[in-house]
Write a protein that binds this DNA or RNA. Structure first.
Length: 416
RNA sequence: CGGAGUGUGGUGUAACGGCUAACAUUCCUGUUUUGGGAACAGGCGACUCCGGGUUCGAAUCCCGGCACUCCGACCA
């Protein structure tokens, strides 16, 4: 994409009402726009990053056998009354409103209830199980305190996967696969080293649920990490019994501040019993479906990536989530020859399938470099009179600052 | 929800109760520049968050809202 066509611009100063690193940098670089506290719009660059994250997750969900759906944000009160979660005393983050005829409706905070209700129409026999459905959908939660930019928002995208199994064994097997899938997702987005599989409070149907906690200064959780296994225990549940279950010694654990980037948990028959989601087994006996739910917030994940990698010059994106593979900068000025060479390289990259952000603006070098640092694309290539004379392209790594000289062919090979 | 703080051009800041609300940046015009946010000149852009009050006079003081940020509680 030609940067001269991008409608967003960078800013030197962040708005004073943003303190969190992720929101400051994402706003300064033009990735997001704040609508109100905890509510952000995604602009072209921001949406590209968000979509990259979504696509990484989608591939894993499909590989797990997940079938993608899209449920509604508007929620039917009667459905939620079946599980007892319509009441604000039970679920206090509801946004509720009403239709013209006074019928109460809610904005979806999560989707166990409506999906269980849908599945009631399709799951009848043990032959129908297991089944897995997931979606990327906007959740609305009336948080008493939105904070930390896009890390804790009131309106946010969430990937929620739900599993429907015949038996506890079948559920456990999938749960294990989902866990491995999650580990791959966090590795692919670049957070593998800093993300820990974590034992957390399990609720009413199992002893534990499991969270994926990423070490991050802006985090809200405290976990105790066993460095050898990279497995952690959330402070909320740390006690002698848990240590014994997990097989850790208190002395080996290191306290870390973390942000919860994903969680998976066993729902048991909490919802299937409430909705009568039963199936007939081989013996013709009616049994409730065993359910599980598995969440990741792509927006929060994006914020976490910013918090973990950004430096004093700006954003630093891992390659798999970056809005573009390459930031191509032409220092052409009035020089038609340089402009021509840069245009040609941009076209050549595009033909080779390498998407680049091409800074073809009529701006000075310093401004372009500063913007490139702020925008944080992993590789920066410079074309100028100097590089043309030498017959090379200057390539700089955003994360390490390392500069090298490279030919066009090698550049294409490297970024492929 | 409890506590604290802050609201002034798009953005960041300034202004003792007293001239036409100042400066920087962004943006527009022009000239000169062109490898780390250039220089000069000119210009656009504000009901000082909203509503009351005090006063000869309010961005400034008082009251009430609202918004935002931070700390805490909460976080299926």
């Amino acid at each position: 994409m030609r940067q001269s066509q991008l409608f967003t611009k960078t800013r030197k100063d962040a708005p004073k009402d943003e303190v969190s690193k992720n929101a400051e940098l994402l706003i300064r670089a033009g990735y997001i726009h704040k609508e109100m506290a905890g509510v952000y719009s995604f602009l072209p660059l921001g949406l590209r990053v968000l979509n990259n994250i979504v696509e990484i997750i989608r591939e894993e969900m499909n590989a797990l056998g997940g079938q993608e759906i899209s449920m509604t944000a508007l929620q039917n009160k009667e459905v939620w009354e079946k599980s007892g979660r319509w009441s604000d005393d039970v679920l206090d983050v509801w946004f509720k409103t009403e239709l013209k005829n006074k019928t109460e409706i809610g904005l979806g905070t999560t989707h166990e209830e409506p999906l269980t209700a849908i599945m009631q129409g399709f799951i009848k026999s043990y032959r129908d199980l297991p089944k897995y459905a997931y979606q990327f959908q906007t959740k609305f939660r009336n948080e008493t305190r939105a904070k930390s930019g896009i890390m804790r928002a009131r309106e946010f995208l969430m990937k929620d996967l739900y599993s429907f199994s015949r038996t506890q064994e079948q559920h456990d097997e999938f749960y294990q696969k989902a866990k491995e899938s999650y580990i791959r997702i966090f590795k692919t987005v670049g957070l593998g080293e800093k993300t820990f599989f974590t034992y957390a409070s399990g609720g009413s149907f199992s002893k534990y649920s499991h969270e994926f906690q990423t070490e991050c200064f802006a985090g809200e959780d405290l976990v105790y990490v066993d460095e050898k296994s990279k497995v952690a225990i959330n402070k909320e549940v740390l006690n002698e019994e848990v240590l014994k279950d997990v097989g850790f010694s208190r002395n080996d654990l290191v306290e870390k501040k973390t942000v919860e980037v994903g969680n998976i948990f066993n729902l048991g028959t909490r919802f299937s019993e409430a909705f009568g989601l039963n199936f007939l087994d081989e013996n013709g006996e009616k049994r409730p479906v065993i359910m599980g739910s598995y969440g990741i917030g792509p927006g929060r994940l994006m914020g976490t990536i910013v918090e973990v990698f950004a430096d004093d010059k700006g954003l630093v994106w891992p390659k798999n989530v970056a809005p573009f593979k390459l930031h191509l900068i032409s220092l052409a000025g009035e020089d038609e020859k340089v402009r021509g060479e840069a245009d040609a390289l941009y076209e050549k990259l595009a033909i080779a399938g390498i998407e680049s952000l091409y800074d073809d603006r009529d701006a000075r070098a310093g401004e372009k470099f500063a913007d490139a640092d702020l925008i944080g694309i992993p590789w920066r290539a410079v074309i100028s009179a100097k590089t043309i004379e030498k017959g090379i392209i200057e390539l700089k790594n955003r994360a390490t600052g390392e500069v090298s000289e490279i030919t066009t062919d090698d550049l294409i090979k490297k970024l492929k």
